[in-house]
Protein backbone atom coordinates (compact mmCIF):
# COMPACT_ATOMS: atom_id res chain seq x y z
CA UNK A 1 0.00 0.00 0.00
CA UNK A 2 1.20 3.44 -0.75
CA UNK A 3 1.72 5.24 2.47
CA UNK A 4 1.32 8.86 1.72
CA UNK A 5 -2.25 9.80 0.99
CA UNK A 6 -1.92 12.56 3.55
CA UNK A 7 -2.57 15.56 1.48
CA UNK A 8 -5.26 14.23 -0.69
CA UNK A 9 -8.52 16.05 -0.60
CA UNK A 10 -7.66 18.26 2.26
CA UNK A 11 -10.54 20.56 2.86
CA UNK A 12 -12.78 18.76 0.45
CA UNK A 13 -16.19 20.07 1.31
CA UNK A 14 -17.89 16.88 0.25
CA UNK A 15 -15.92 14.59 2.43
CA UNK A 16 -17.11 13.29 5.72
CA UNK A 17 -15.93 16.26 7.71
CA UNK A 18 -14.49 15.13 10.99
CA UNK A 19 -15.22 11.55 10.19
CA UNK A 20 -12.32 11.32 7.85
CA UNK A 21 -11.05 13.63 5.24
CA UNK A 22 -10.06 11.06 2.69
CA UNK A 23 -13.32 9.37 2.07
CA UNK A 24 -16.92 10.30 1.81
CA UNK A 25 -18.91 9.34 4.81
CA UNK A 26 -20.87 6.62 3.05
CA UNK A 27 -17.77 4.93 1.77
CA UNK A 28 -16.11 5.10 5.15
CA UNK A 29 -19.18 3.55 6.79
CA UNK A 30 -19.07 0.73 4.32
CA UNK A 31 -15.46 0.06 5.22
CA UNK A 32 -15.93 0.30 8.96
CA UNK A 33 -18.90 -2.03 8.78
CA UNK A 34 -16.49 -4.72 7.74
CA UNK A 35 -13.95 -4.14 10.46
CA UNK A 36 -14.26 -6.62 13.32
CA UNK A 37 -15.64 -5.34 16.57
CA UNK A 38 -12.48 -5.30 18.58
CA UNK A 39 -10.31 -3.06 16.41
CA UNK A 40 -13.39 -0.98 15.81
CA UNK A 41 -13.67 -0.27 19.50
CA UNK A 42 -10.01 0.61 19.52
CA UNK A 43 -10.69 3.15 16.80
CA UNK A 44 -12.82 5.14 19.21
CA UNK A 45 -9.49 6.59 20.19
CA UNK A 46 -8.99 8.03 16.71
CA UNK A 47 -11.00 11.20 17.18
CA UNK A 48 -14.19 12.47 18.74
CA UNK A 49 -16.41 11.95 15.76
CA UNK A 50 -15.24 8.38 15.36
CA UNK A 51 -15.93 7.79 19.01
CA UNK A 52 -19.54 8.87 18.75
CA UNK A 53 -19.93 6.91 15.52
CA UNK A 54 -18.46 3.79 17.06
CA UNK A 55 -20.17 3.93 20.43
CA UNK A 56 -23.63 2.71 21.18
CA UNK A 57 -26.22 3.86 20.64
CA UNK A 58 -25.67 4.82 17.05
CA UNK A 59 -27.25 3.57 13.88
CA UNK A 60 -23.84 2.50 12.71
CA UNK A 61 -23.30 0.33 15.75
CA UNK A 62 -26.69 -1.26 15.25
CA UNK A 63 -25.83 -1.97 11.63
CA UNK A 64 -22.48 -3.36 12.62
CA UNK A 65 -24.01 -5.62 15.25
CA UNK A 66 -26.43 -6.93 12.67
CA UNK A 67 -23.60 -7.89 10.37
CA UNK A 68 -21.34 -9.47 12.94
CA UNK A 69 -22.05 -12.20 15.37
CA UNK A 70 -19.92 -10.64 18.02
CA UNK A 71 -20.09 -6.94 18.48
CA UNK A 72 -18.61 -5.49 21.61
CA UNK A 73 -19.56 -2.11 20.34
CA UNK A 74 -23.18 -3.01 20.70
CA UNK A 75 -22.98 -4.64 24.06
CA UNK A 76 -20.23 -2.42 25.31
CA UNK A 77 -18.23 -5.33 26.56
CA UNK A 78 -16.15 -8.01 25.00
CA UNK A 79 -15.41 -11.41 26.27
CA UNK A 80 -12.39 -11.76 28.43
CA UNK A 81 -10.91 -15.12 28.95
CA UNK A 82 -8.34 -16.75 31.07
CA UNK A 83 -6.58 -19.97 30.40
CA UNK A 84 -4.67 -22.10 32.76
CA UNK A 85 -3.20 -25.40 33.53
CA UNK A 86 -5.99 -26.91 35.50
CA UNK A 87 -4.93 -30.47 35.87
CA UNK A 88 -1.61 -32.09 35.19
CA UNK A 89 -1.26 -34.32 32.19
CA UNK A 90 -0.95 -31.49 29.76
CA UNK A 91 -4.50 -30.36 30.15
CA UNK A 92 -5.52 -26.78 30.24
CA UNK A 93 -8.66 -24.97 30.98
CA UNK A 94 -9.85 -21.87 29.30
CA UNK A 95 -12.18 -19.61 31.18
CA UNK A 96 -14.34 -17.29 29.17
CA UNK A 97 -15.85 -14.35 30.93
CA UNK A 98 -18.12 -12.02 29.09
CA UNK A 99 -20.66 -9.46 30.00
CA UNK A 100 -24.12 -9.21 28.66
CA UNK A 101 -26.10 -6.06 28.82
CA UNK A 102 -29.02 -7.55 27.04
CA UNK A 103 -30.77 -8.62 30.20
CA UNK A 104 -29.26 -6.26 32.69
CA UNK A 105 -25.63 -6.42 33.59
CA UNK A 106 -24.50 -9.92 34.24
CA UNK A 107 -21.53 -12.12 33.53
CA UNK A 108 -21.58 -15.19 31.42
CA UNK A 109 -18.95 -17.72 32.34
CA UNK A 110 -17.91 -20.70 30.34
CA UNK A 111 -15.07 -23.10 30.59
CA UNK A 112 -13.38 -25.36 28.11
CA UNK A 113 -10.75 -28.03 28.55
CA UNK A 114 -8.01 -28.28 25.99
CA UNK A 115 -5.04 -30.56 25.76
CA UNK A 116 -1.48 -29.48 25.15
CA UNK A 117 -1.85 -30.22 21.49
CA UNK A 118 -4.50 -27.60 21.22
CA UNK A 119 -7.39 -29.98 20.88
CA UNK A 120 -10.52 -29.36 22.85
CA UNK A 121 -12.31 -31.82 25.02
CA UNK A 122 -15.95 -31.36 24.40
CA UNK A 123 -17.83 -28.15 24.41
CA UNK A 124 -17.77 -24.97 26.38
CA UNK A 125 -19.43 -25.62 29.69
CA UNK A 126 -21.42 -23.08 31.62
CA UNK A 127 -20.11 -22.26 35.05
CA UNK A 128 -21.79 -20.19 37.78
CA UNK A 129 -21.36 -16.44 37.66
CA UNK A 130 -18.84 -14.69 39.91
CA UNK A 131 -19.93 -13.27 43.27
CA UNK A 132 -19.99 -9.75 41.86
CA UNK A 133 -20.45 -8.54 38.31
CA UNK A 134 -17.01 -8.23 36.79
CA UNK A 135 -16.06 -5.74 34.20
CA UNK A 136 -14.62 -7.55 31.28
CA UNK A 137 -13.40 -4.63 29.28
CA UNK A 138 -10.08 -4.47 30.91
CA UNK A 139 -7.56 -7.16 31.30
CA UNK A 140 -6.84 -7.17 34.96
CA UNK A 141 -6.97 -10.88 35.03
CA UNK A 142 -4.27 -13.41 35.50
CA UNK A 143 -3.74 -16.98 36.41
CA UNK A 144 -1.52 -18.33 39.17
CA UNK A 145 -1.42 -21.83 40.54
CA UNK A 146 -4.64 -22.95 39.03
CA UNK A 147 -6.60 -19.93 40.08
CA UNK A 148 -7.83 -17.12 37.89
CA UNK A 149 -7.66 -13.77 39.62
CA UNK A 150 -9.70 -10.89 38.40
CA UNK A 151 -9.08 -7.41 39.72
CA UNK A 152 -12.52 -6.11 40.57
CA UNK A 153 -11.64 -2.75 41.99
CA UNK A 154 -8.36 -0.97 42.42
CA UNK A 155 -9.53 2.44 43.47
CA UNK A 156 -9.03 1.68 47.13
CA UNK A 157 -6.58 -1.13 47.41
CA UNK A 158 -7.09 -4.29 45.49
CA UNK A 159 -10.33 -6.20 45.43
CA UNK A 160 -10.02 -9.48 43.66
CA UNK A 161 -12.38 -12.22 42.58
CA UNK A 162 -10.87 -15.68 42.30
CA UNK A 163 -11.90 -18.65 40.22
CA UNK A 164 -10.70 -22.10 41.12
CA UNK A 165 -9.99 -23.86 37.88
CA UNK A 166 -9.94 -27.28 39.38
CA UNK A 167 -13.25 -26.98 41.17
CA UNK A 168 -14.53 -24.83 38.32
CA UNK A 169 -16.17 -22.29 40.52
CA UNK A 170 -15.70 -18.79 41.84
CA UNK A 171 -14.65 -18.46 45.43
CA UNK A 172 -17.61 -16.97 47.30
CA UNK A 173 -15.58 -14.26 48.99
CA UNK A 174 -13.64 -11.48 47.38
CA UNK A 175 -9.98 -11.20 48.16
CA UNK A 176 -8.52 -7.97 49.44
CA UNK A 177 -5.05 -6.75 48.76
CA UNK A 178 -2.32 -5.73 51.19
CA UNK A 179 -3.41 -3.19 53.75
CA UNK A 180 -0.07 -1.43 54.00
CA UNK A 181 -0.06 -0.24 50.41
CA UNK A 182 0.10 3.47 49.71
CA UNK A 183 -3.24 5.22 49.42
CA UNK A 184 -4.83 7.03 47.79
CA UNK A 185 -4.12 6.61 44.17
CA UNK A 186 -3.51 9.76 42.22
CA UNK A 187 -3.80 9.14 38.51
CA UNK A 188 -1.74 12.17 37.71
CA UNK A 189 1.27 10.51 39.19
CA UNK A 190 0.84 7.52 37.00
CA UNK A 191 0.38 5.27 39.91
CA UNK A 192 -1.15 1.99 39.19
CA UNK A 193 -2.40 -0.99 41.05
CA UNK A 194 -2.35 -4.22 39.24
CA UNK A 195 -1.87 -7.91 39.60
CA UNK A 196 1.07 -9.99 38.61
CA UNK A 197 2.28 -13.46 38.99
CA UNK A 198 5.62 -14.07 40.62
CA UNK A 199 6.89 -17.56 40.93
CA UNK A 200 3.45 -19.02 40.75
CA UNK A 201 2.07 -16.75 43.39
CA UNK A 202 -0.37 -13.95 43.01
CA UNK A 203 1.28 -10.59 43.49
CA UNK A 204 -0.34 -7.27 44.18
CA UNK A 205 1.62 -4.61 42.36
CA UNK A 206 1.78 -0.95 43.16
CA UNK A 207 3.75 0.92 40.60
CA UNK A 208 4.64 4.43 39.65
CA UNK A 209 6.58 5.56 36.65
CA UNK A 210 9.82 4.53 38.25
CA UNK A 211 9.12 2.19 41.12
CA UNK A 212 7.23 -0.95 41.77
CA UNK A 213 6.21 -2.65 44.98
CA UNK A 214 5.04 -6.20 45.12
CA UNK A 215 3.14 -8.13 47.71
CA UNK A 216 2.80 -11.83 47.35
CA UNK A 217 -0.20 -13.79 48.35
CA UNK A 218 1.15 -16.29 50.82
CA UNK A 219 -0.11 -19.75 51.31
CA UNK A 220 0.80 -23.22 50.36
CA UNK A 221 -1.15 -23.15 47.21
CA UNK A 222 -4.08 -24.74 48.88
CA UNK A 223 -6.64 -22.66 47.17
CA UNK A 224 -9.28 -23.28 49.76
CA UNK A 225 -7.62 -20.86 52.12
CA UNK A 226 -7.96 -17.92 49.81
CA UNK A 227 -10.80 -16.40 51.69
CA UNK A 228 -11.29 -12.74 52.34
CA UNK A 229 -10.42 -13.02 55.97
CA UNK A 230 -7.32 -15.12 55.88
CA UNK A 231 -5.78 -13.86 52.73
CA UNK A 232 -2.37 -12.67 53.64
CA UNK A 233 -0.16 -10.55 51.53
CA UNK A 234 3.36 -9.92 52.56
CA UNK A 235 5.48 -7.20 51.19
CA UNK A 236 7.89 -8.62 48.77
CA UNK A 237 11.29 -7.00 48.73
CA UNK A 238 13.12 -6.70 45.52
CA UNK A 239 15.56 -9.34 46.51
CA UNK A 240 13.40 -12.18 45.64
CA UNK A 241 14.83 -15.56 45.12
CA UNK A 242 14.52 -15.80 41.42
CA UNK A 243 17.19 -17.82 39.75
CA UNK A 244 19.78 -16.14 37.58
CA UNK A 245 19.08 -12.90 39.29
CA UNK A 246 15.87 -12.46 37.49
CA UNK A 247 12.33 -13.48 37.79
CA UNK A 248 9.60 -13.21 35.33
CA UNK A 249 6.38 -11.59 36.12
CA UNK A 250 3.22 -11.57 34.24
CA UNK A 251 1.85 -8.13 34.10
CA UNK A 252 -1.76 -7.21 34.34
CA UNK A 253 -2.20 -7.41 30.65
CA UNK A 254 -1.53 -11.06 30.52
CA UNK A 255 1.78 -12.11 29.21
CA UNK A 256 3.38 -15.44 28.90
CA UNK A 257 5.50 -16.65 31.71
CA UNK A 258 7.21 -19.65 33.04
CA UNK A 259 6.74 -18.41 36.53
CA UNK A 260 10.05 -19.56 37.85
CA UNK A 261 9.64 -23.14 36.91
CA UNK A 262 12.51 -24.56 34.90
CA UNK A 263 10.21 -25.42 32.12
CA UNK A 264 6.67 -24.67 31.38
CA UNK A 265 4.06 -24.59 28.84
CA UNK A 266 0.85 -22.77 28.60
CA UNK A 267 -1.89 -21.27 26.62
CA UNK A 268 -0.66 -18.23 24.84
CA UNK A 269 -2.43 -15.68 22.88
CA UNK A 270 -1.99 -12.16 22.11
CA UNK A 271 0.20 -9.24 21.66
CA UNK A 272 1.81 -8.29 24.90
CA UNK A 273 2.57 -4.73 25.40
CA UNK A 274 3.66 -4.25 28.94
CA UNK A 275 4.90 -7.68 29.58
CA UNK A 276 8.38 -8.87 29.81
CA UNK A 277 11.21 -9.89 31.93
CA UNK A 278 12.00 -8.06 35.08
CA UNK A 279 15.29 -7.90 36.86
CA UNK A 280 15.66 -7.05 40.46
CA UNK A 281 17.10 -3.74 41.30
CA UNK A 282 16.97 -1.08 43.97
CA UNK A 283 13.24 -0.57 43.88
CA UNK A 284 13.27 -0.08 40.17
CA UNK A 285 11.63 -2.30 37.72
CA UNK A 286 13.30 -3.02 34.48
CA UNK A 287 10.64 -4.26 32.27
CA UNK A 288 11.83 -5.40 28.95
CA UNK A 289 9.46 -5.79 26.18
CA UNK A 290 10.85 -9.13 25.43
CA UNK A 291 7.56 -10.39 24.35
CA UNK A 292 7.68 -8.33 21.23
CA UNK A 293 9.52 -11.03 19.41
CA UNK A 294 6.57 -13.24 20.01
CA UNK A 295 4.14 -10.82 18.57
CA UNK A 296 4.65 -12.14 15.12
CA UNK A 297 3.45 -15.44 16.33
CA UNK A 298 0.64 -14.30 18.47
CA UNK A 299 -1.91 -16.68 17.25
CA UNK A 300 -3.65 -18.47 20.02
CA UNK A 301 -1.75 -21.50 20.94
CA UNK A 302 0.04 -23.59 23.41
CA UNK A 303 3.71 -23.11 24.00
CA UNK A 304 6.19 -25.45 25.49
CA UNK A 305 9.69 -24.53 26.37
CA UNK A 306 12.05 -23.36 29.01
CA UNK A 307 12.46 -19.98 30.52
CA UNK A 308 15.85 -19.55 28.98
CA UNK A 309 14.37 -20.06 25.60
CA UNK A 310 12.31 -17.03 24.85
CA UNK A 311 11.05 -18.30 21.59
CA UNK A 312 9.30 -21.38 22.51
CA UNK A 313 7.80 -24.04 20.49
CA UNK A 314 4.40 -23.11 19.32
CA UNK A 315 1.52 -25.36 18.81
CA UNK A 316 -1.29 -23.35 17.58
CA UNK A 317 -4.84 -24.23 18.23
CA UNK A 318 -7.69 -23.02 16.21
CA UNK A 319 -9.20 -19.69 16.99
CA UNK A 320 -12.65 -21.18 17.10
CA UNK A 321 -11.51 -23.30 19.97
CA UNK A 322 -11.05 -20.21 22.00
CA UNK A 323 -14.49 -18.93 21.45
CA UNK A 324 -15.72 -15.93 19.71
CA UNK A 325 -14.04 -12.73 20.70
CA UNK A 326 -12.21 -14.33 23.55
CA UNK A 327 -8.87 -13.31 24.85
CA UNK A 328 -6.72 -15.83 26.50
CA UNK A 329 -4.20 -15.46 29.21
CA UNK A 330 -1.04 -17.34 29.54
CA UNK A 331 -0.41 -19.96 32.07
CA UNK A 332 1.52 -23.07 32.53
CA UNK A 333 0.77 -26.62 33.45
Amino acid sequence: MAASPQTRRDGDGESGGGIGTLLHRDALYEILLRVPAKPLCRFRAVCRSWRSLLSAPSSFVAAHAARHRCSPCATGCPAATAGTGGGGDGEYKVLSLSTSRHYGMRNLCKILTVDAGGGSHGEWRDVPAPPVVLETFHRHTLVASGTVYHLVDRSNGWTIAAFDLEAEQWLPDLLHGPSDAPVPLTPARRERRSLAEVNRRLAAVYSTASTMDLWLLMGSGDRAQFGASNAEFSRHPWTWSGTNGSGQIRSRCGCWTTGGSPSGCGVVTRQMEYSGCMTRGPKRAHVWHTASNLEQACTPGIYCGSRSNMLMEWRSCSASLLGNGCTLFVSYG
Binding site: G18, R42, C47, R48, H138
Partner: peptide, 30 residues
Protein backbone atom coordinates in the same frame (compact mmCIF):
# COMPACT_ATOMS: atom_id res chain seq x y z
CA UNK B 1 -5.50 5.08 11.34
CA UNK B 2 -5.29 8.82 11.72
CA UNK B 3 -2.34 8.83 9.41
CA UNK B 4 -3.93 6.66 6.76
CA UNK B 5 -7.23 8.52 6.78
CA UNK B 6 -5.71 11.90 7.36
CA UNK B 7 -7.67 12.58 10.50
CA UNK B 8 -6.76 15.14 13.07
CA UNK B 9 -6.53 13.99 16.65
CA UNK B 10 -8.91 16.24 18.55
CA UNK B 11 -8.48 14.57 21.92
CA UNK B 12 -6.44 16.02 24.71
CA UNK B 13 -3.63 13.92 26.04
CA UNK B 14 -5.60 13.19 29.21
CA UNK B 15 -8.71 12.16 27.31
CA UNK B 16 -6.69 9.84 25.15
CA UNK B 17 -5.11 8.22 28.16
CA UNK B 18 -8.55 7.78 29.69
CA UNK B 19 -9.88 6.14 26.55
CA UNK B 20 -6.87 3.93 26.38
CA UNK B 21 -7.50 2.77 29.91
CA UNK B 22 -11.14 2.21 29.27
CA UNK B 23 -10.46 0.34 26.08
CA UNK B 24 -7.30 -1.37 27.23
CA UNK B 25 -8.61 -4.73 26.14
CA UNK B 26 -9.07 -3.50 22.60
CA UNK B 27 -5.46 -2.48 22.31
CA UNK B 28 -4.27 -6.03 22.32
CA UNK B 29 -4.68 -7.53 18.99
CA UNK B 30 -6.36 -10.72 18.12
Amino acid sequence: IREVFNIKNDYTKEELEEIRQELAWAFYDD
